[in-house]
């Protein structure tokens, strides 16, 4: 059986515990994330896990790729501790402020440089952007087919696999020829935890940092200026209601609430 080279795209997302510290840059209307610790999104861990399992069952290797500002090496280190063989951080001022299309363009340029790739894994959606758009768009730039919302994969031959595409209240089973881009859902697997060998493994590996000079790209398609979508404005939305606070002992509060809900006719009378 052929050994497989899998690439996993992992996105540095701001650690959820610090989200309230993130602000919007009034000039560029992009997010100011400086100083916010980064984390690996939950679905990206499922993507990595799937690639690691394929490596373990079939042989081959796993390369993780991320686009982000300097300082996001941390998540790549973590991916190596978990078992990835190689890591690439695509980082350049010119990449900053990218929407999904410009992000996918840079990720694809990095993946092309890696040479022969059989499988590209992504999380179905990231924790912060949550668009789920990067996977299909990376596939377009790579000229590969794409699958999203994947809950199960079976390698059925050297150049093909079967997958389950979850849709609302059901699924579509497909067969696809590799190379292919696959965005995975949470149900696909249970990501592993790090073990002590991971740290030893990681010591012998380094993270490659690639800038604009290391990849073949058209400058006009990068970053904020290469992004077709922009934020036109930000508004606060009116969701205000009367906000009547009920106080007292628990039993007392419960009595008050039920009475009010009966008056509002959302609960039946006794």
């Amino acid at each position: 059986m052929k050994e497989l080279h899998s690439v996993v795209c992992i996105k540095p997302v701001p650690d959820q515990r610090f989200w309230d510290k993130i602000s919007l840059d009034p000039k560029t209307q992009t997010l100011r994330r400086a100083g916010i610790p980064v984390a690996l999104g939950p679905l990206d861990l499922n993507a990595l896990e799937e690639a690691l399992r394929i490596k373990e069952s079939r042989g081959g290797k796993v390369t993780v790729v991320s686009m982000g500002p300097p300082g996001t090496e941390e998540i790549l280190e973590w991916a190596i501790v978990l078992g990835a063989d190689e890591a690439v951080l695509l980082s350049d001022r010119a990449f900053a402020g990218a929407d999904t299309l410009a992000t996918a363009y840079v990720l694809a340029s990095g993946i092309k440089k890696l040479g022969d790739v059989d499988l590209v894994f992504l999380g179905n959606e990231s924790l912060d952007g949550s668009t789920g758009q990067v996977g299909p768009q990376v596939a377009e730039f790579l000229g590969m087919s794409h699958l999203t919302h994947i809950t199960k994969i079976d390698l059925t031959g050297d150049n093909k696999l079967e997958a389950k595409f979850r849709i609302e209240f059901g699924s579509i089973d497909v067969e696809v020829k590799t190379p292919v881009v696959i965005a995975v859902d949470k149900e696909i697997n249970e990501p592993r935890l790090a073990n002590i060998w991971g740290a030893v493994w990681a010591q012998e590996r380094k993270i490659n940092c690639w800038s604009i000079n290391d990849v073949e790209v058209d400058r006009d398609k990068l970053g904020l200026s290469g992004s077709p979508t922009q934020v036109a404005g930000v508004t606060t939305i009116e969701l205000k209601r009367k906000g009547e606070m009920l106080t007292g002992e628990p039993a007392d509060i419960a009595r008050q609430l039920v009475k009010k809900l009966q008056t509002d006719k959302v609960l039946p009378e006794a």
Binding site: L24, D128, V231, V234
Partner: peptide
Amino acid sequence: FGGAVMADIIC
């Protein structure tokens, strides 16, 4: 982001 505002996205 963070869920406090509504953003208008334009192309």
